[in-house]
Nucleic acid binder design. Structure first.
Length: 474
RNA sequence: GGCCCGUUCGUCUAUCGGUUAGGACGCCAGGUUUUCAACCUGGAAAGACGAGUUCGAUUCUCGUACGGGCUGCCA
């Protein structure tokens, strides 16, 4: 019996939830959730200068939006500083680490010289094998004694076996001269203490894995399964940065992407399961595996994201869509849907959800439901309410009033009307659309009438027939 | 500079030595149509380059080019 899978997401709280980070979190979440494992969250806040509580809140909020629920408490790496130091001192006591008294100036000077000479800038501390009795009474850092012979093999589930010669490894610092732990030590200790079995993270950490392995080995701890995933790039193939526009997960929430569509897109970006493109969370959890992750960086494609979002909206449950739409409105500082409108909206959803890729589009199509009499006609709608079409509405309205209130009944009435007037239905659709919604782009006119009901429909038609254009008409 | 990684249509990708190199988004053309969207049909579109291994390479090896990462008392 192998143990339970434990994954984690460990962002630095220096800003919002980056879209690349969101994908890393998603992969960890999928891997754990698909295997009955645990998905933990740790905030890497050891850099006191750059870490802020606002950033932590933003990251949490972004994950909540994406539906990436984590197990247990949120761990603060900073709060584990004592334990990290304890491990460093244990290594020191076991002679697997040493005190280094080299000053930062000395090291900087060395590097500068090495670079100028075209030689390796790897710093070799003279204190590694120094006699403790020769130690000065001065500030020191604790460095690990990294192996110098042989090689370290990172058995990576995505990148394959990556071999790093040990002479490429430096004696990295574990504890700074002020006694605080360095990230490289903190991650290893935390991952071990938290029981993390699979480390799925950006491939900018691939080389670091070799260095971290020296700590695992020095402590005699099991090395986790590594999976270093390629970072997401912008549409131009360059590393995703500010000039590419939307970087934060929340920005996509603000654009009105449904979370399910976002998950689907992000999952499929750089990972594949045959030809499957559109899938549910359940399928994603079942299918997701490390072997399906590609080795090269993928570019972010907004068009495909939108397409997937549209497909997810189309298959969403009507009531659930209303709820998510409400959440979107609140998240974007708009007023939520009233209770009365919520019911209408849900009933209208069947003719709305096939036509929208995002929530703003959905709202646009739903305008006929959200608006109230007297309607405001936008410019294009107003154009459809000229004197001729008002005349048509005037004659048609009484007939509709007596029609059987079903699609067939309404089609029969309008069809007969069109025949009698010898006009095409297309001629009537524009005015009807304008009258019912105040807009020129709407769902089918019959759908709108069905959703609005007879009374509201007739009232709106009468309003429109009496519409007085402000300026020039006809 | 040193070390490590990557490279199939515009984009995301399938292929795990033998395929007319498949799918999706996007794009183009046509159809349907009640606006928008959707939908249907068809189309253009790819193995970075050069060697080698092999009966046979997109697939394995090496080199080149290009891209990326690491090389901090940052994470």
């Amino acid at each position: 019996m192998t143990g339970q899978v434990v994954t984690r997401f460990a962002p630095s709280p220096t800003g919002f939830l980056h879209i690349g980070g969101a994908r890393t979190a998603l992969f960890n979440w999928l891997y754990a959730r698909g295997r009955g494992g645990k998905f933990l969250l740790r905030i890497e806040d050891t850099d006191r200068e750059r870490s802020t509580p606002e950033a932590t809140a933003a990251i949490l909020q972004g994950m909540a939006w994406l539906g990436l629920d984590h197990d247990g408490e949120v761990v603060s790496q900073f709060e584990g500083a004592e334990r990290h130091a304890e491990v460093a001192h244990q290594l020191l006591a076991q002679d697997k680490a040493y005190k280094c008294f080299a000053t930062q100036d000395e090291i900087a000077a060395f590097r500068e010289q090495a670079r100028a000479d075209g030689k390796s800038t790897l710093y070799r501390s003279p204190w590694r094998d120094a006699d403790p009795s020769s130690h000065p009474d001065a500030p020191f850092v604790i460095r690990i004694k990294a192996p110098r012979d042989g090689a370290t093999v990172i058995r990576d589930q995505v990148q394959g076996d990556v071999t790093i010669r040990n002479d490429q490894l430096d004696d990295m610092i574990l504890l700074r001269s002020d006694g605080t732990p360095v990230y490289m030590l903190a991650v290893v200790v935390d991952d071990h203490d938290m029981g993390v079995t699979h480390v799925i993270r950006g491939d900018d950490h691939l080389n670091n894995a070799a260095r971290q392995m020296t700590i695992y080995q020095a402590m005699g701890w099991d090395v986790p399964v590594w999976a270093h995933i390629p970072l997401i790039h912008g549409p131009d193939g360059k590393k995703l940065s500010k000039r590419h526009g939307a970087l934060g997960a929340q920005e996509y929430q603000g654009m009105g992407c449904p979370a399910a569509g976002m998950r689907n897109y992000l999952t499929r970006l750089g990972w594949s399961h045959g030809d499957d493109e559109f899938f549910s969370d359940e399928q994603a959890k079942e299918w997701f595996d490390l072997g399906g992750i590609g080795k090269s960086p993928a570019r972010f494609d907004t068009k495909k994201l939108e397409n997937l979002c549209g497909q997810h909206i189309a298959v969403s449950d009507d009531a659930a869509l209303v709820t998510e739409l409400d959440a979107f409105l609140v998240a974007t500082d708009q007023s939520p849907v009233s209770e009365v409108k919520s019911v209408l909206l849900r009933d209208a959803m069947y003719c709305l959800k096939d036509r929208a890729k995002t929530f703003p589009e959905l709202l646009e199509k739903a305008h006929f439901v959200m608006t109230n009499r007297p309607l405001n006609y936008d410019a294009k709608a107003a154009k459809n309410l000229n004197s001729v079409s008002r005349g048509i509405l005037n004659e048609l309205t009484p007939q509709l009033q007596n029609a059987s209130w079903s699609r067939d009944g309404m089609e029969a009435v309008t069809g007969a009307f069109a025949d009698a007037k010898d006009i095409k239905f297309g001629k009537m659709a524009g005015p009807l659309r304008a009258a019912l919604s105040g807009r020129a782009v709407t769902p089918s006119v019959f759908d709108m009438m069905l959703v609005l009901g007879r009374d509201e429909t007739i009232a709106r038609l009468k309003d429109a027939a009496e519409y007085q254009p402000e300026a020039q008409d006809d």
